[in-house]
Simulated scan of single mutants.
Amino acid sequence: MYLAVLISLVCFSSGVLSNSLLSPCKLSDIPCIEKSVNAALPKIISGIPELGIEVSDPLFIDEIEGNLSIIKYKFFNTTITGYKDCSISNLKLNDDLTSLHYDLNCPKLHLIGKYEVSGRLVILPVEGNGDFELISGKYVITADCEMKKNEGNDGKTHLFIKNFKLKMKPLTPIKFDFKNLFNGQKDLSDTVHKFANENWLEVAELVQEPTWYACTKKIISKVNKFLKSVALEDIILN
């Protein structure tokens, strides 16, 4: 996610951007890296126009599709806010820069957009389309990234994030609000909302993965755009 941008900036000093936003750290000094990343995070996610990197909070995603075993959903024109208040912990970065691990800790995430859904929400049938809103409390998203090196147009070595895997866990209740469930039948809609809001953890574990993978994929594209501007030969701190 966007945190890889921060980690890369901390690990490698890169001219004006690094000097103005971060305190340089040695690659082996993980506490220093975490401190610098968390101090710079609100500035970085505001975007880096000179590198063509857009703002990450709010984050806009055209379509999110969840084809799950018992429920299928689509989110359209989704806006996600709250990343600017997230922080990282448990950061691990191996010596050859091929593996990155961290926990993203978010106090609140807010999603709004349009939806379509059909299937079963754990035990209840559900269907509908319309506007939706999700408001989470504390969330932890654990990321394991595979990083690769290639030769850029400048003949120097550059990093990029090839693959990533996520684990997600909400720590506090989530508010679910889906307008026009069952074509506006209030009794059926109220039953589903009551179940979802009372069983928020079970519901989140069922449906959350496609949404967070879509968010991460969007931000990873911004991370790799930044990494193309960073040459390892020039900026690794010894």
Rank of each mutant, 00 (worst) to 15 (best):
Q185V: 13
S189L: 11
Q208C: 08
P210M: 00
S189F: 06
N197Y: 05
T216H: 05
A204P: 00
D190T: 14
K186D: 06
V223H: 02
S221H: 03
F182I: 11
H193M: 14
C215L: 12
P210R: 01
K218W: 03
K217T: 07
S189W: 01
E205F: 10
N183I: 07
V207M: 06
E198T: 08
A204G: 01
V207N: 13
N199P: 11
A214F: 02
A214L: 02
K218Q: 04
D187T: 15
I219R: 07
E209L: 10
V223I: 08
E209A: 07
Q208K: 05
C215R: 03
D190A: 12
K217F: 09
E202S: 10
Q185L: 10
F195G: 14
H193C: 14
S221P: 00
N199W: 10
K217H: 11
L201F: 08
H193L: 15
E202T: 14
L206I: 09
H193I: 09
T216W: 01
I219N: 10
N197E: 06
I219M: 15
A196Y: 12
D190F: 06
Q208E: 05
T191V: 08
E205S: 04
K194W: 03
N183Y: 07
W212H: 09
I219W: 02
I219S: 04
G184R: 03
A196L: 11
F182L: 15
A196I: 09
V223A: 11
N183K: 12
E202R: 04
V192K: 11
F195P: 11
C215A: 02
Q185S: 09
F195V: 15
A214G: 01
F195T: 09
T191Q: 12
K194T: 15
F195W: 05
N199I: 08
P210V: 00
I219P: 01
V192M: 04
K217Q: 15
D187L: 13
I219C: 01
S189Y: 03
V203G: 03
E202L: 10
T216R: 06
K222N: 02
N197C: 09
T211C: 10
K186S: 09
P210W: 00
K217M: 04
D190N: 15
N199Y: 01
N183A: 12
T211W: 03
K186M: 03
K194Y: 07
K222T: 02
I220N: 02
T191E: 12
P210Y: 00
L188Y: 10
I220E: 04
W200T: 08
K194D: 14
L201A: 08
Q208Y: 14
Q208N: 13
A214H: 04
V207G: 02
P210C: 00
Q185Y: 08
K194H: 13
D187Q: 15
L188E: 13
D190H: 13
Q208V: 13
L188F: 12
